[in-house]
């Protein structure tokens, strides 16, 4: 979690220095959802991420240096620096994509899970999405087919309380964790700022999925500390609310389980890793027009 936090703080600084040639959607405050959910996953398991997905990428094993390079528009980035934050896909580690389209990962997750079923693998797919995505048609289509086909799929709704610039109350009817009920899909709501609680809930769902018992709907309640995008001052919400959630910082809570010495050692190793990632990214050349045309088609 600390790696993800420091990664985003660092890239946020780079943004203010004019080094990020694209939008940034920070997941600061929400790290426990990604890190908890991915804790027990294998490389061969798949995840689908969102427009706010740096923490998912890192939790699934993305290289901080290459991810940083992508966000900084450098040739060493995963899409040669052409895609940026919302367009990272690393199939070799099971990351099938962050996504610029809200809800678009849900149909793709059903496809990955279907393939695992066809191939008779005991791998699973974990699909992250925000509460805003529950308003899309893709959400309804995906939970129906996942339940109908008993797909090895875990839906993880990362409810950070805000859908772009408006509160979730303007978007969501009912309770998301119960949306699968009438499909026969078990649901659970967890404290999304408690990494252990998220890990336990997802591990149970993953075990069900690996055993062929089908999908689960998990809603992890958390909070987006910053605006929708870097630069959004989030004037549409009260400071008091933000401060209240900041006291529930998932990093502070998980840190309580560590000795001071262990925490200090962890901090130092994260700082080293982040410094190395930033140096790697900044040393990589800025992507130029010569890289634009490659990787559109395998064969022409």
């Amino acid at each position: 979690m600390r790696l993800s936090r420091r990664f985003e703080e660092t890239v946020h600084d780079q943004f203010h220095e004019g080094q990020v040639p694209g939008p940034l959607h920070l997941s600061i405050g929400q790290e426990a959802v990604a890190i908890g959910a991915c804790e027990g996953l294998r490389v061969s398991d798949a995840i689908l991420s969102t427009h706010r997905g740096h923490h998912h990428c890192l939790a699934k094993g993305a290289s901080p240096g290459r991810l940083m390079a992508e966000l900084l528009g450098r040739t060493a980035g995963y899409s040669r620096g052409r895609g940026g934050s919302m367009h990272v896909a690393i199939p070799s580690i099971g990351l099938l994509g962050t996504n610029g389209i809200v809800g678009a990962g849900l149909p793709i997750a059903t496809g990955a899970a279907y393939a695992m079923q066809v191939q008779e693998r005991d791998d699973v797919c974990v699909c992250f999405f925000g509460e805003g995505a529950t308003g899309t048609g893709a959400f309804g289509e995906a939970i129906n087919i996942a339940a109908l086909w008993q797909l090895p799929l875990v839906f993880v709704c990362e409810n950070n309380q805000y859908v772009e610039l408006t509160p979730q109350e303007l978007h969501v009817a009912g309770e998301i964790w119960r949306r699968g009920e009438s499909f026969g899909m078990p649901g659970e709501r967890v404290d999304g700022n408690d990494v252990g609680a998220v890990a336990d809930a997802v591990a149970t769902a993953v075990a069900r999925a690996r055993d062929g018992e089908g999908p689960t709907m998990i809603e992890a309640l958390t909070y987006r500390w910053f605006g929708h995008y870097a630069g959004d001052q989030a004037a549409y919400r009260e400071d008091e609310e933000v401060q209240r959630w900041r006291t529930l910082d998932p990093l502070v809570r998980s840190r309580a389980a560590l000795s001071d010495a262990d925490a200090g050692a962890l901090d130092a190793s994260v700082e080293d890793e982040i410094a190395a990632a930033l140096a790697f990214a900044l040393e990589s050349p800025i992507t130029g027009p010569d890289a634009l045309a490659v990787d559109h088609l395998a064969t022409v």
Partner: peptide, 24 residues
């Protein structure tokens, strides 16, 4: 496989399956 009337998921099935090793 017969699918529900879910065109977004239908193509998503292909994208997801194509990403993890099938030729859908």
């Amino acid at each position: 496989r017969d699918t529900p009337i879910s065109e977004q998921v239908l193509v998503g099935l292909g994208v997801g399956a194509g990403a993890v090793g099938l030729r859908p």
